[in-house]
Design a protein around this nucleic acid. Structure first.
Length: 646
RNA sequence: GCGCCCGUAGCUCAGUUGGAUAGAGCGUCUGGCUACGAACCAGAAGGUCGGCAGUUCGAAUCUGUCCGGGCGCACCA
């Protein structure tokens, strides 16, 4: 509702400027510094002052002569601000009737790719940041009416999987059958976590062993032999583990495109022909990249023509690099490859949603994915160089529009705080001790596993729930503790902007008070409790539409405190819109916290059930219900559920 | 060496794209449960927005420069 009025005000001022001065200037709106200044401020007069060679104040006076539906007053303030006061009765009435003037969106398909964890070991907290950011962004887009397809790319043929296969074959002498037994009997992703680290150490101590990796990669590529078989078993089992971990956080996917099919279905071969044909890459005949197909650095780095900086796309042995495959994959995402995968059902979630995986075998279905008009790749910022190369590839092929609609949705890494390292018994080098945080490393087995963190959070939440609700059944307390744990984790991950390095600290992540997910849930639970108590006392929830006239609302909203709280509660759409535009999910998270704070203030200041004036009680009940709805909606966008109690 | 990112309260971070008196949480201190549940609320203390120079009506925000920190710059992904 609020952002509709903001837009209406901006449009009105804009057309006023056009008619007065014959100028087309974009009009900004902002929030006044003080509540007493009104609800919306327009600084347009300052921008016009220079062009018109007039005092801002005089311009503001001319602009102010406007009537806008929903606006009660326009004042000139300061040196030339237009301060705008909303018509409170109008505003509340429209909130009540749900007639907020929101317009539906056109349904172009947006592709969001996130998670993309190498299927060779358990997920860690860095992967969680990726998945939570991606999933929340998806929820934001969907809540504004966009059509979104969620992809989770599976690199099942790469070095990381090969190294775990090396571990099984050469360090543990296991057959495919024995690996299958492990999958059935162990927490397999944890097992691989340790094994992968062991292989890393082994390589360091025995560099000759690297030949095992090369052999294994060949076997996987030829899709033959025990190595290839184990690689399939490992990758599939780990993907299932990752999906199970993510589901704990309410994260689901639509499709899993796999690298094996990019190769088998010759996606790369098609892209390779295009790249050669358009001369986006060339065959290097001398220097360090002799015998490779390379992309010149001038394509992806401004002002660079140093051949040493060129990026190898096809190795001298004829195999394609990750970037090459990624260019082919990106082409497919935009529907520019003229080809699609086949799809087989991979897994059906408890809510009935089906996730599909790519396959190279024709299937008896008509599933199609990809061919989006806009693509967000949620990938950490350390890969921005490679993402630049991929986009340069699109551009070099002449797909400038698509290159412009390829967004590297980047975020900084999650590292470990020194305190967390000590807590986990990790020995730090002298160099690391001097740092304010320590980077995680899968190869060294250094990191906090996602499932471990979630378990810890649930355990702590369960303690809290039990201390207040010991009489409730254990299974139910457990379910509620899980919701609280998810809220804590998702909020903790989202409270930072994307380009802030998170130095993960158990103390902060496990906190349930202050600016946290559980704080917001608590507000929603309290709102719900008031409404539930009403029923317990034998009173019915009034029909607000018939019981509250516009005039009555206007009267009750003359109370400045009450009005400010309602105003804050009505700004969910603004927050979501701002998050989508800026690509910063944190704005919605922070709004949710503010909203919860506002409700806590309301809760403290305005006793609802003990109110003796019937009309005022009805009004306060409506406020409560509106807060409850807005809290639930905003939390849903963050992927957080509201428990019945906590 | 080159490229990108960061430096804001004791700590961890926001700051709506250049606007009015720079904000939260944690921590510290003071107060509030016989109440619609205290996972809460009210209040206090705490700032040369890394330094300097510029751009203009106006700068935490833009430009330059210096200082300090991080991450990239593979025929790994």
């Amino acid at each position: 509702m609020f952002h509709i009025l903001e837009k209406r005000i901006a449009a009105a001022v804009s057309s006023r400027i056009a008619s007065l001065y014959n100028l087309t200037t974009p009009v900004q709106t902002e929030q006044p510094k003080q509540a007493g200044f009104g609800e919306v401020a327009v600084p347009a007069a300052f921008q016009l002052a220079r062009e018109l060679k007039k005092a801002p104040k005089a311009i503001a006076a001319e602009l102010a002569d406007l009537t806008i539906p929903g606006v009660s007053k326009i004042e000139i303030a300061g040196n030339g601000y237009l301060n705008i006061r909303l018509d409170r009765g109008y505003y509340a009435h429209h909130l009540l009737t749900g007639d907020t003037g929101a317009e539906p969106r056109t349904a172009e398909k947006i592709i969001v790719e996130h998670t993309n964890i190498n299927p060779n070991k358990a997920a860690h907290i860095g992967h969680l940041r990726n998945a939570i950011l991606g999933d929340t962004f998806v929820r934001m887009l969907r809540s504004t009416g966009q059509r979104v397809e969620v992809q989770n790319y599976i690199d099942n043929t790469g070095v990381q999987v090969a190294d775990v296969v090396v571990g099984f074959r050469h360090l543990e002498n296991k057959s495919p059958g024995q690996v299958q037994q492990l999958i059935d009997s162990e927490k397999f992703d944890y097992y691989c976590w340790d094994l992968y680290a062991r292989v890393g150490t082994y390589y360091q101590e025995n560099p000759d062993a690297l030949k095992w990796r090369a052999e294994t990669l060949h076997s996987i590529e030829a899709n033959a032999g025990a190595e290839a078989e184990i690689a399939h078993l490992v990758a599939d089992a780990i993907v299932h583990a990752h999906l199970a971990t993510m589901l704990r956080l309410n994260i689901e996917y639509d499709v899993l495109p796999r690298e094996s099919e990019i190769l088998h279905l010759k996606f790369w071969a098609i892209a390779f022909e295009q790249l050669k044909e358009r001369k986006a890459i060339y065959f290097e005949t001398e220097g360090k990249n002799k015998g490779c197909w390379v992309m010149p650095s001038s394509a992806f780095r401004e002002g660079s023509d140093n051949e040493e900086d060129s990026k190898v796309i096809v190795r001298s042995n004829g195999t394609v690099t990750y970037v090459g495959k990624d260019i082919a994959y990106q082409l497919w995402k935009f529907g520019l490859l003229g080809k699609d995968f086949y799809y087989r059902p991979w897994h059906r979630y408890p809510d009935g949603h089906q996730v599909w995986a790519s396959t190279d075998q024709p299937q008896n279905n008509d599933m199609h994915f990809g061919a989006g008009s806009r693509v967000y790749n949620v990938i950490d910022s350390r890969q921005s160089y490679l993402q630049d190369v991929v986009v340069a590839g699109l551009r070099a092929l002449g797909y400038n529009d698509q290159a412009g609609r390829s967004v590297h949705f980047s975020y900084e890494m999650v590292a470990l705080s020194p305190a967390t390292c000590v807590e986990m018994g990790i020995e730090l080098s002298e160099e690391d001790k001097r740092k304010s945080y320590v980077e995680m490393s899968g190869r060294k087995g250094l990191g906090v596993k996602a499932d471990d963190l979630i378990d810890k959070l649930i355990e702590k939440a369960l303690d809290e729930v039990t201390s207040r609700n010991a009489d409730q059944p254990a299974q139910e307390r457990n379910r509620i503790a899980t919701k609280i744990a998810v809220a804590a984790l998702r909020y903790f991950t989202l409270k930072y902007t994307r380009n802030t390095v998170i130095a993960f600290d158990f103390g902060e992540a496990l906190s349930f008070t202050g600016e946290t997910g559980p704080y917001v849930q608590y507000a929603a639970v309290r709102a719900h409790k008031i409404l539930a108590k009403l029923g317990e006392r034998g009173e019915a929830l009034p029909d607000f539409r018939s019981a509250l006239s516009r005039e009555a609302m206007e009267r009750h909203l003359a109370d400045e405190g009450c009005w400010q709280l309602l105003l804050e509660a009505s700004k969910a759409d603004s927050a979501i819109e701002r998050s989508v535009e800026s690509g910063e999910p944190t704005h919605v998270a922070r709004y949710a916290f503010q909203l919860a704070q506002s409700f806590s203030t309301f809760y403290q200041k305005y006793p609802v059930l003990s109110e003796t004036d019937p009309e005022r009680k009805t009004f306060l009940l409506w406020m409560t219900d509106y807060f409850r709805a807005q809290l639930e909606r905003t939390l849903a966008v963050l992927g957080i559920e509201v428990p019945e109690y906590m």
